[in-house]
Write a protein that binds this DNA or RNA. Structure first.
Length: 555
RNA sequence: GCGGGUGUAGCUCAGGGGUAGAGCAUCACGUUGCCAACGUGAUUGUCGUCGGUUCGAAUCCGAUCACCCGCUCCA
């Protein structure tokens, strides 16, 4: 049987989006009012799928974590616990975390080249010639900017290279932020003056306000990540539980980022759900823990079905890393909406050192300083004051005191859900009742993720089969999400269940009435076996617990 | 934010200044003996939204919203 895993050819994503809407996985938000950019709702099947992703993560990382054994690749045994913080937090949290500064960039657009620049990153130099004084900006590095500025100026004034001495330059290159009149500015990618817009603020954090009365002091932000809630509760968790380092705190929840360009279905959205762990460890062993978490998180996606070439681990190059981070890896998936060879991030596993805890102790650290120091304002005081609380940790055995280092595996629930959907989408061919091959569309989810685990069908709607089938439906319902259907031809019912990824269909026929046995049909192979109802339960349970691709077919 | 494309039934799409179309899907009844195409019947729309031109607009024009592609952005 030819089975195709569609690649990046045009139309696959459209088919997935269409199926998602048609079968109740994902709808556009506020659709009857025309839709809301970058917002998507999960329908009745989508909510089950997403819950299964989220709960699989929570079970595997937290509730089912074995804190007595040393896991493969781990330096030692460790504990895990959970947390659920509010979306609204003290605004100082975001000032110390760095989000406040980072998310308030001023941007300028060039009307001519249609390019956009960060206001504080455009540099240039004043030059005077032919009685005209203009500010020439450049795209180049610090070393090359002088040469490029000269060439641009010569071209603008219509001079040849030998006329360089006719240009009267100001001494210094300065930042565009120091130039108020943009009409005299030659933009980096333009040949005419005055094409830059005024700087505009991009508020990447959603702003709201607490209390009925609005004033400046009541402004708060919707969190742009869940992680900070963990850092600011680090001391609470240490003080109120008996956890000892090394240990991890996990949290799942909504976060909000005012993306400039939401795109690609649920991939880049403004409201999204994160599943994050902050793992606290001794600085001496942090490198080993980083490698452990990086490999373990990749393994998690693989076990749930993303095992092919479309999933990869990408270590950041050293020039991509903050100097205080000694490692970051992205777990990436080749989504069908991306160009061939491109991957989209599912999860980032970052070694964050002690940057976050120290920032919440002493004040926001300057990420460019090395060694890290508190960033100072113009008055010489900390730009953003920390909590002043001591967030260091004293090891009760060695008596060593240190600020823990942090490994942060931070994944997107919506992105993982989308990746599982894309990976599951399969087209193959199967014979119809006359033996002609027909196209079949199926979602080959791992049984653990499938919204519906079992469908129960009476083969035909007579001879007592529906009653018997309903009794079996009720029995299975105690264990799984089960769907009952007695309408139309059984083949059609099978295909409908294939399309929403139900791994098993149980069919009640004449023999069921006689001896209680039923047939169970496997979604992927379409093979059937005859079992007792009790065996159906163990079969489905086994498949749900299975790892990777094994166990997807009937035993 | 810029440029290009698209928007008609739940889905895929045709049509095009004068009563809104097809296939699939859905529902009912009958039929049924294991892989979507059995029969009969039924439901479905302010033609994305708002405004303009016109005797008359789903059709022409403008604006707007959303989606797709390319820039930009991706902290």
């Amino acid at each position: 049987m030819a089975r195709q895993k569609p690649g990046n050819q045009a139309g696959v994503m459209e088919k997935i989006v269409s199926l998602c809407k048609r079968r109740g996985f994902v709808y556009q938000s506020s659709e009857i009012y025309g839709g809301m950019n970058g917002c998507w709702d999960y329908g009745p099947l989508g909510v089950e799928l997403k819950r299964n992703v989220r709960e699989s993560w929570w079970q595997d990382m937290v509730t089912c974590h074995d804190d007595m054994s040393v896991l493969d690749g781990a330096p030692e045994a460790f504990e895990m616990c959970g947390l659920d913080c509010t979306i609204l937090m003290d605004p100082q949290v975001w000032k110390c975390s760095g989000h406040f500064d980072l998310f308030h960039d001023k941007m300028i657009d060039c009307r001519d080249s249609k390019r956009r620049y960060r206001h504080d990153q455009v540099r240039g130099r004043w030059v005077e010639a032919k009685g005209e004084r203009i500010f020439v900006t450049v795209n180049a590095d610090l070393e090359a900017e002088e040469t490029e500025a000269r060439q641009k100026a010569l071209k603008y004034f219509g001079y040849r290279s030998k006329d360089s001495d006719k240009l009267n330059w100001d001494v210094e290159f300065i930042c565009l932020t120091e130039v108020s009149d943009h009409s005299r500015v030659l933009a980096p990618d333009s040949k005419e003056l005055g094409t830059l817009t005024e700087p505009r603020e991009f508020n990447l954090m959603f702003k709201t306000q607490v209390g009925a009365l609005y004033d400046e002091d009541s402004v708060v932000f919707l969190r742009p990540e869940t992680a900070q809630g963990i850092f600011v509760n680090f001391k609470n968790v240490i003080d109120s539980t008996r956890v000892r380092i090394p240990f991890g705190i996990a949290q799942v929840g909504k976060s909000f980022r005012n993306e400039i360009t939401p795109r690609h279905f649920t991939f880049r959205v403004r409201e999204f759900e994160q599943m994050e762990i902050e793992f606290f460890c001794n600085p001496a062993s942090s490198q080993e823990w980083y490698r452990f978490w990086r490999d373990r998180r990749l393994d998690w996606y693989q076990r749930l079905g993303l095992s092919g070439e479309r999933l990869r681990l990408r270590e950041h190059d050293s020039d991509e890393l903050s100097h205080y981070s000694t490692g970051t890896a992205d777990i990436e998936y080749a989504f069908p909406f991306l160009a061939e060879g491109e991957f989209g991030e599912l999860e980032g596993v970052a070694h964050r050192g002690d940057f976050d805890l120290r920032s919440h102790m002493d004040g926001k650290l300057d990420p460019k300083s090395d060694p890290l120091e508190v960033e100072l304002g113009e008055d010489g005081k900390p730009l953003w004051r920390g909590s002043g609380r001591d967030l260091s940790y004293r090891d009760p055995i060695s008596n060593e005191r240190f600020v823990p280092h942090v490994i942060e595996p931070s994944g997107g629930v919506d992105r993982a859900t989308l990746a599982f959907l894309c990976e599951a989408y399969t087209e193959d061919e199967a014979p119809d009742d006359k033996g002609n091959l027909r196209q079949r569309v199926l979602l080959s989810f791992h049984p653990r993720l499938a919204p519906i685990k079992v469908a129960v069908f009476p083969l035909v709607k007579k001879d007592g089969m529906p009653d018997r089938a309903k009794a079996i439906y009720r029995e299975l319902k105690q264990y799984f999400n089960v769907f009952y259907d007695e309408k139309g031809a059984v083949g059609r019912r099978y295909r409908r269940m294939d399309e929403v990824g139900t791994p098993f269909c149980v069919t009640i026929d004449g023999d069921t009435i006689k001896d209680g046995s039923v047939t169970i049909r496997d979604r992927d192979s379409m093979e059937q076996r005859r079992l007792s109802v009790g065996e159906v339960i163990t079969t489905v349970q086994k498949a749900i617990r299975s790892q990777g691709q094994e166990g997807l077919s009937c035993p």
